[in-house]
Design a protein around this nucleic acid. Structure first.
Length: 390
DNA sequence: AATACTTGCAACCGCGCCACA
DNA sequence: CTGTGGCGCGGTTGCAAGTAT
């Protein structure tokens, strides 16, 4: 269609922002909010396009931006999230409050990417570069591809769940506000939300944002299919259980509370990672989640465009993969390929250095594989005091 | 001291998605 | 259903500051 770029207008300024311009933009937004970015420059008296203003605001002027050096924790978070999400900087930035996607992207490109490369880790795949040597036989390639699918799968699912939880929080928040006027909404404490209620909100959202087709519900969170309402109820109950697993104590941080309680499968994810020899076990992935995986029987529809993007059209093959082997076997079978070490491999210290063929007993690969996934999943499940993520 | 090269980061560009008419 | 405008995202560029020669 060829829409002309917003900055094509002659007379609009480009390039670095002056302090005066910053001041104008700040003052305007503080007073009026940004509203329509397109209309903002004229109203604020700026000779800039709206896009430029938005960029300046989101990347630089926003008051909640943390500037300066990235902490070790932040670095680790970025690396691990990048392993999961790839170059989806905004998604990564969502997990690093106060950091902008642009900043993270820059930091990745200028620091982390190089560092990983130096360590012999491919910054794209997060696997040791020598792994490519391993993948000569078709079997290995196939398994590697499967694992890649799994990562994409998890990535997409995680994101969708993040979004759901966030939205549910918003909903809960507005509900709290409205109900506080009307005399207390049933069962929601003033100091925070019970996990069940939070997830209930999430469930409402789920119901709202998903299509109910016949006897099953297609969920944007990807993995879940309900055969009937009772299972939805089950889900809510499960959430309660999940919070019990945390000792049933009041959690300081509301966001953590919401997160952990609203993502039972992630909790189980952790359980299976932490307490079993293998990163995933069939029990960890299947039975603990009270909803049945429907991949075998249900045509799986992705409604979320971002999932579509991140899945990159691999859904069907993934479906087949899971159908054929299941999550556990996938990881077991592909352990030979997935030996990336995110941390502790400084100076090429990983045991797959210089080609896996020499150091590559299947046991080692298994171990590496476990480490790899553990390191990623640890992030997802790390405590809020340790991680900026949750 | 002058020049070349490297690094880090702010800003721009183009594309795709989404809401709406 | 389709076209359009607004917005957000990821990739890329350009420039200033720092470092090496």
């Amino acid at each position: 269609m060829g829409r002309s770029p917003c900055c094509d207008k002659v007379g609009l300024k480009k390039g670095p922002w002056t302090p005066e311009e910053d001041q104008k933009l700040l003052a305007y937004i503080e007073e009026h909010g940004h509203g329509s970015w397109r209309a903002l420059p004229a109203k604020a008296g700026l000779q800039r396009c709206g896009k430029s203003c938005r960029l300046r605001w989101t990347n630089y002027l926003r008051p909640d931006i943390k500037r300066g050096k990235f902490s070790l924790q932040e670095e680790q978070t970025i690396i691990q999230l990048h392993a999961l999400l790839g170059n989806r900087w905004s998604a990564i930035a969502n997990h690093l409050p106060k950091r902008t996607d642009n900043e993270i992207k820059n930091y990745w490109n200028t620091h982390l990417k190089k560092r990983l490369a130096k360590m012999g880790i491919d910054p794209v795949t997060h696997k040791p570069k020598s792994d490519t040597l391993l993948s000569r036989d078709g079997q290995s390639n196939k398994s590697a591809a499967k694992l890649s699918h799994m990562a994409q799968w998890e990535s997409a699912r995680l994101e969708a769940e993040v979004r759901l939880v966030r939205e549910s929080k918003l909903r809960s928040h507005s509900f709290k506000q409205s109900s506080s006027g009307g005399g207390g909404g049933g069962g929601i404490s003033s100091s925070g939300f019970s996990s069940a209620s939070t997830f209930a909100a999430s469930g409402q959202l789920l119901a709202k944002t998903t299509r109910i087709g016949g006897d099953h519900l297609e969920s944007p969170t990807s993995t879940l299919t309900f055969s009937d309402n009772s299972k939805q109820q089950q889900m809510t109950e499960f959430v309660g259980t999940s919070s019990d697993q945390q000792g049933g104590t009041i959690i300081k941080d509301e966001s953590e509370h919401d997160w952990k309680s609203s993502m039972p499968n992630l909790g189980e994810f952790k359980e299976s990672v932490g307490s079993h020899t293998l990163p995933f076990t069939s029990t960890g992935f299947h039975h603990d989640i009270p909803m049945s995986m429907s991949l075998e029987t249900t045509p799986w529809t992705i409604h979320d465009s971002r999932i579509k993007t991140s899945m990159g059209g691999h859904c069907s093959s993934l479906e087949n993969d899971i159908e054929a082997e299941g999550f556990t076997e996938l990881l077991l079978n592909s352990s030979g390929e997935q030996s990336g070490l995110l941390e502790g491999s400084g100076g090429g210290g990983g045991n797959s250095e210089n080609g896996g063929e020499s150091g590559g007993s299947s046991r080692d690969y298994l171990e590496d594989n476990k480490n790899y996934w553990n390191s990623i999943l640890n992030l997802v499940n790390s405590s809020p005091s340790d991680s900026p993520l949750f």
